[in-house]
Design a protein around this nucleic acid. Structure first.
Lengths: 156, 156
DNA sequence: CTATTTGCAAAGTCTTTGCATCGGT
DNA sequence: ACCGATGCAAAGACTTTGCAAATAG
């Protein structure tokens, strides 16, 4: 499915909810698609959109992302100390490992979590929200870089 | 180990790092101990401390928590849209399931995550930081309350 | 005594909101 | 035309920082 088609499909859901398909919204969705691999922030999205549509305001991005989240199209995660990052929720068949040193995102399939989810549901009567399976850690590259040091103070 | 002893032990680590044991710091640690089950925010901690020490400023709490985190004594988590919450890092043998509806925290033992961690390390060369194993979801009580609705919009 | 810590206030960062105007349907 | 969306600016929530005074060691 190409980007234009995906955008139309998502805007169809927006309209089904009483929302409208505007230029700014198309551009925001385009940016989300183009940068889906970097978990963009609102600032990142706004700057990118403004390259072609200089008038688009940050508040528009915030408001549309809220709406997309309400519709279940995107999710947000707040890692570390920085601003919130957004990504599509539709990618329901995989989750993310975010390296807390280099920020690289590794995708892992949902099935990795299946047995854990089942066990927690059975033993603790708690249904984990799959979309919050974003886990922090260290990728191999960063781990090798300063493995001599044991503490790994990052001092933010 | 009683609270006074735990506080002394933690202040000993602070002093070993060149820090000092002050009244405000004792009160903050006492509050962290008393409220360890609710993942307190800075505001929560400050208000509690101020009951006995009205002069203690919020900035003091922020600064001391930063230091405790740097020393590996506490960790922070940012869930949903609200402020950062803090908890002891020492509780290394369990993790938290936080209900996104009622906020209740369920503790689960570390071993639940062991096989997942190993698998991710082996297959993806990624070492998950155990302390970020806080997972969101729905507890049974909340799940039963509005199970008829399928979507469960929470509107933040 | 000296270096760290504190309270206070100001500044900073990220996010939300009010409102007149604009634009999609 | 109608009602939702937008830009802008202001306000809000949370956090950090500067600095002189206070205090631990």
């Amino acid at each position: 499915m190409d980007a234009a088609t995906r955008i139309d499909a998502m805007l169809a859901r927006v309209r089904a909810d009483g929302g409208r398909a505007t230029t700014a919204r198309r551009a925001i969705l385009q940016t989300l698609i183009d940068h889906h691999d970097v978990h963009p922030t609102v600032e990142h999205i706004t700057t990118t959109v403004q390259a072609n549509h200089p008038e688009v305001a940050e508040s528009t991005v915030y408001r549309f992302l809220d709406e997309l989240e309400r519709l279940g199209i995107v999710e947000h995660v707040r890692l570390g100390h920085g601003p919130t990052v957004y990504h599509f929720a539709e990618d329901t068949n995989h989750h993310h490992l975010v390296c807390s040193t280099c920020g690289r995102v590794t995708e892992v399939p949902q099935r990795i979590f299946d047995s854990l989810s089942k066990r927690v549901l059975r033993d603790y009567a708690f249904e984990i929200e799959a979309r919050h399976f974003t886990l922090a850690g260290r990728c191999q590259t960063c781990d090798e870089q300063d493995s001599p040091g044991v503490h790994g103070h990052s001092h933010r």
